[in-house]
Design a protein around this nucleic acid. Structure first.
Lengths: 262, 262
DNA sequence: GATGGGTCCTCACGCCGCGTGAGGTGCAAG
DNA sequence: CTTGCACCTCACGCGGCGTGAGGACCCATC
């Protein structure tokens, strides 16, 4: 039977702690100097000795730092009297999921931009910066319209100037056109979107994107398909090939993805 | 029929551009000063006039900056002669998905830490900083073992010192114990993990976590269940209540999640 | 035509979060 | 006894801007 001897005295030197945390010794010196992380003890020779609790604190410091908090705010968070450790872990988890969501939105915006480029649609300035969610949408929208309005005309004027890529652009365009004709014929022939022919053309569409532009797995393809009907210009792009083509294609893409991932 | 008049001359002032990009005018001045983003023109009065291409460049600058690139590297990326715009979008998408993965791993590590805390298991220093994936696992592992080894003994010594929370900790522990007895009885009675009784206790388990520690949706609960069998100490924690309890519980949790989300 | 408000300009200094030496100390091994 | 290593304390510098100070321009209003 073990004796209940109380706290075991373990402590680490700056070098060890720096190793654990993946930071430099200088950083730890700095955190000590500004009072953010003062080692709970000093050795005989004046060397810093970090306790286990200090390590915990460092972990939190580095976590919040990684998420972009300035050090004084980090200190405020850590020295919060309601410093329940559970609360910290909970908050860390919340911050992480929030960041993940933000990045996923950015990724979607990038996909949107890639597709716009693929279709020769130029984006308005607002759309270009839509990637960064950090805008007051309300105040911003007002300002954008009121102060330097006329974006409609601008977008219209830019819509033609999009073919500034070189010569293989033509071959690519030819491929798109050929595919469009075949797909339009399929639609007018009354083929269902879940039919094999439609799914095959959907797959060809995906392959086209992958070979000419960027890798497009099925999941992403479905996401794009959603934009084809939700974004007015994407919809217009496909509907110009044939009436109702955008929706039809979306369903075909969805069905094609389902058949490949099942 | 529209005339092909060539490039439409649109340009924006610093204030407008700052508005679009969500940055300050000073930042644009700075980028001009260091040659990162020089406006393609100046007005009669010496005012900066940003073209549409400049906006594109700014968007990319801000994107890479957001992901933590220093400005000189950003410049290197943007002034890369192979500056195919497609390549940029592709790279942006790759960077984003990489970041998302990293954050998801961090989130998992946080969940791991939360569960460890819940079970009164103290983590080793290495595990504490496992959240940050930025460690050479090989070189690090060697160093950790060779230079300041003895972590096994350390972990052992810490395992008891984990109950440093106050008085309601006891009530919580009592709940855990009661639940454990009931679940053990269920297992010895031969109840299947997919049975209703097991699923009910799994749901109770989830509720316990949610009320005492952190919100635990079904998806996360399943993730935790995986750790109960993959992490040695978690497994030991549950198996100490009854033989084979960890696996049984994992299956019950999975089944319970399926029944609630279907 | 004078006055004001708004946006723009160019210095130039300062802050934060450290990196990077310079110069000195304590201790264990050769 | 010296060599080496990890530690110490200044202290300067750098990147990426924030924050004025002081002035020019433009348009509207009195």
């Amino acid at each position: 039977m073990r004796t209940e001897k109380g706290a075991d005295e373990v402590s680490y030197s700056v070098g060890q702690v720096a190793g654990f945390g993946g930071v430099t010794v200088r950083t730890l010196h700095h955190y000590d100097a500004i009072g953010l992380l003062a080692p709970s003890e000093r050795s005989h020779a004046g060397h810093r000795r970090y306790s286990d609790a200090d390590l915990d604190r460092l972990q939190r410091i580095l976590f919040y730092r990684e998420l972009g908090f300035p050090l004084d705010e980090v200190a405020a968070l850590l020295d919060d009297p309601d410093a329940d450790p559970r609360a910290h872990l909970r908050r860390q988890h919340e911050l992480l999921t929030a960041r993940i969501e933000k990045l996923q939105k950015m990724a979607e915006a990038v996909e949107h931009a890639m597709e716009a480029r693929r279709m020769g649609i130029n984006l308005t300035p607002e759309e270009r910066f839509e990637v960064f969610g950090d805008k007051d949408p309300d105040q911003y929208a007002e300002e954008a319209e009121a102060r330097w309005g006329g974006t409609e005309a601008y977008a219209e004027s830019q819509r033609r100037a999009a073919r500034y890529t070189k010569d293989d652009w033509k071959r690519m365009q030819a491929e798109v056109d050929a595919w469009g004709e075949r797909y339009a014929a399929l639609v007018t022939a009354g083929e269902p979107a879940t039919g094999e022919a439609a799914m095959d053309l959907a797959e060809e569409h995906r392959r086209h994107i992958t070979t000419w532009f960027y890798d497009c797995p099925y999941e992403m393809h479905v996401s794009l398909a959603g934009m084809y009907v939700s974004d007015e210009r994407f919809k217009a792009f496909y509907d110009s090939m044939g009436p109702g083509l955008a929706e039809h294609l979306r369903d075909a893409i969805t069905a094609n993805a389902a058949r490949h991932t099942s």
